[in-house]
Write a protein that binds this DNA or RNA. Structure first.
Length: 201
DNA sequence: TGCACGATAATCT
DNA sequence: GATTATCGTGCAA
């Protein structure tokens, strides 16, 4: 049905903002013990070097060190006492920056995702960063994983049947610092994108 | 359809 | 002790 090819690190832009745009329309795949879950990435946000809203802004700590790994590594953090969020590091080794994966259009393993998010419709299954991580079963255990290596969590080239996305841009959701910067990217018209209608035009 | 609000814990000051 | 890159519910229209 779906045939995803692993993206090589050399295919990823070495720039957090470019990576955020690049990842729209690509695939995220989790080969979990219970089976494969995958989807099309439809919404991202860039947290770039020098950005006061970025977790990496004040330098490396035990919590955010994964943001300083070379581009293509996972940074997973726990927020509001309840949710995990998945990022992809976006800069060269030693430079802090990352792309928050905010929403996915489910492709494979829909039943597995629904088991983790009972009652959620297909559109709402991975619509939002916390929901995305919950649906795919992503936790702190995945922090620091290389998404370009032969591990369980990886980035895939678009399915051959997928259309090229029309990419929209807006300010980021939920941030108070540097709130004006247009660093959120999304696929126009995709019902799995989170956020208000006004942001998604 | 669109807000307001509380839950909840890791992290940092 | 304050802050937080969220979510689900509840209530109003």
């Amino acid at each position: 049905m779906h045939r995803f090819r692993r993206l090589r690190r050399s295919e990823l832009p070495v720039d957090t903002q470019e990576l955020a745009r690049f990842l729209i329309g690509k695939a995220l795949v989790h080969d979990s013990p219970r089976g494969r879950m995958s989807g099309r990435i439809v919404e991202t946000e860039a947290y770039v070097p020098g950005d006061a809203a970025a977790h990496s802004f004040r330098g490396a700590t035990p919590r955010n060190r994964s943001l300083f790994l070379t581009h293509g590594h996972a940074y997973v953090y726990f927020i509001y006492g309840a949710w995990f969020c998945l990022n992809v590091s976006g800069e060269a080794e030693g430079v802090g920056g990352g792309v928050l994966l905010r929403a996915l259009e489910p492709a494979e393993g829909v039943e597995l995702m629904q088991r983790r998010r009972p009652g959620a419709t297909l559109h709402k299954l991975a619509c939002g960063p916390g929901r995305l991580a919950t649906a795919l079963g992503i936790t702190k255990r995945h922090d620091g994983l290389d998404l370009c290596a032969s591990g369980p969590l990886w980035l895939g080239a678009p399915d051959p049947h997928w259309a090229k996305p029309s990419i929209g841009r807006s300010v980021r959701i939920g941030v108070t610092k540097e709130a004006h910067r247009p660093l959120r990217f999304f696929e126009r018209g995709n019902p799995c994108v989170s956020g208000s209608r006004r942001l998604n035009s």
